[in-house]
Design a protein around this nucleic acid. Structure first.
Lengths: 247, 247
DNA sequence: TTCCAGAAGTGGGCTAGACCACTAGCTTGT
DNA sequence: ACAAGCTAGTGGTCTAGCCCACTTCTGGAA
């Protein structure tokens, strides 16, 4: 049973193998035997070295899709479907994955001097300018969150020309500035809605809200965005997946 | 400059190398040149194969300590210190890492029939029994959180004999049942404090609180614990680190 | 029938090479 | 002075093996 891989060097073999296995896992093709073929079997099937197979498996293990048991084999992690694990996506992508229709109402969008807090978050020098974007985020046309976003102005020239009502901010950044987010720090806390936020969200003043502060970094660890999002507690909850050591 | 490793097979070489490099990074020994030696140099220094070095580096890269630039080299990620990233630790460990003194007041500790929700969370069958542990968690002798914990009774016989006022629950589980947590799912939401919780936490009824629901799994993906923790919003915030794809 | 030793199979670890794409700096020719 | 091309060095990928610790199964001895 020879599986075929593209060997023109455009896509690494271990990536192709990982993708192929990921699909088979999603289709539950291993469910009968409850486990994957051994590393040596896979190496033979794909006609690659065992090290390459191990590299592919490691990727899947890191994602929590599979786990190894020494001396026994490799197994599919049949944990309940990730209803929605919070990851490095923007609001739009997140709502879509939840089956909701995202939209935005831009309340403010201007270039301004960075405040001390923003300067520190974005690691900017004194006098640096930022884009300030204030949006009401809707899901199925109902208010879901109130968001304040700061972006270093020098990184995104002419950002003001884009329509952020329809487009995902992250999409604009990737497509027009080739700016990809790589990792982020988030701080979550509970708070009571202030008068202004309560009015926008359509809840009473003092109602509980979930506040998420997020700083997004590029691959070279440069801060790209600093955001402050206030979610309605009755409509939103954040799900995380935690793992030990990561190995 | 030959670095020495223990080669008796007790600790994998790549682990030793990763540890050695981690220490050097923390001591900022690479700061002058701003980068690490090349993989080939490291292989020579430690007298191992380059693949082994790469394995060590991959571990560090996963932790966000370093990053690679193709054709250039490997660099230390000089991001600000992780003040406190939420990870798979219990309350006690978390408070200690924050520099606070943890303690507990056990309000309830009994064996009981699992409710439907708990049954589902812990993947138990009908009629299964669980330990129910209700604790007020203190930091520096001030109320920080109100916690309800459920554990499958069949996994932890005689759990009732331990003093959970002084000891960390996770410590008891590891030391006495060899039960190690491997990963967890957490759901965070904001809420208003109920009367009972408010009294225990010493806040007014309706004050905002951060509710964390956590299910902890073993390495073989078996649910070990289901917890529901209500944190005072004015004393606690949760910090997470998010990364793309994990590669 | 029971028990135990061995064999076979598994993932974990490691080696000593190889070729590739990419970057930066140097050299050389204009 | 400048640009083009070369070269050395880097991480990315891959190979074809090897030994180890561990589990499970199986067949033979007690």
């Amino acid at each position: 049973m020879q599986e075929t891989l593209t060997r023109d060097g455009t896509v690494p073999l271990h990536t192709q193998i990982a993708e192929a296995l990921r699909i088979k896992i999603q289709n539950e093709e291993f469910k009968e035997k409850e486990n994957l073929p051994s590393e040596r079997e896979l190496a033979e099937q794909y006609a690659v070295s065992r090290m390459t197979v191990r590299q592919a498996l490691q990727k899947l293990r890191h994602e929590g899709l599979i786990y190894h048991e020494r001396g026994i084999g490799t197994f599919v992690n049949n944990r309940k479907i990730d209803v929605h694990t919070r990851n490095l996506n923007g609001f739009s992508e997140e709502m879509i994955s939840l089956g909701l229709k995202p939209s935005s109402r831009v309340l403010t969008f201007q270039r301004e001097l960075a405040s001390d807090e923003v300067m520190q978050n974005l690691q900017l020098g004194a006098g640096a300018e930022v884009f300030y974007l204030e949006r009401l985020r809707l899901a199925d046309d109902e208010p879901m969150a109130f968001e304040r976003t700061y972006l270093p102005a020098y990184l995104f020239p002419k950002l003001e020309e884009f329509d952020l009502t329809k487009n995902s901010l992250y999409q604009v950044l990737v497509e027009n500035y080739d700016s990809r987010m790589h990792h982020a720090e988030e701080v979550l806390e509970a708070a009571a809605a202030t008068k202004r936020v309560a009015e926008q969200l359509g809840v009473r003043t003092g109602a509980p809200v979930l506040v998420v502060r997020r700083i997004v970094f590029s691959e070279s660890n440069q801060p790209i965005e600093s955001a402050h999002t206030v979610y309605r507690a009755d409509r939103y909850r954040a799900t995380f997946y935690l793992s030990k050591n990561g190995a």
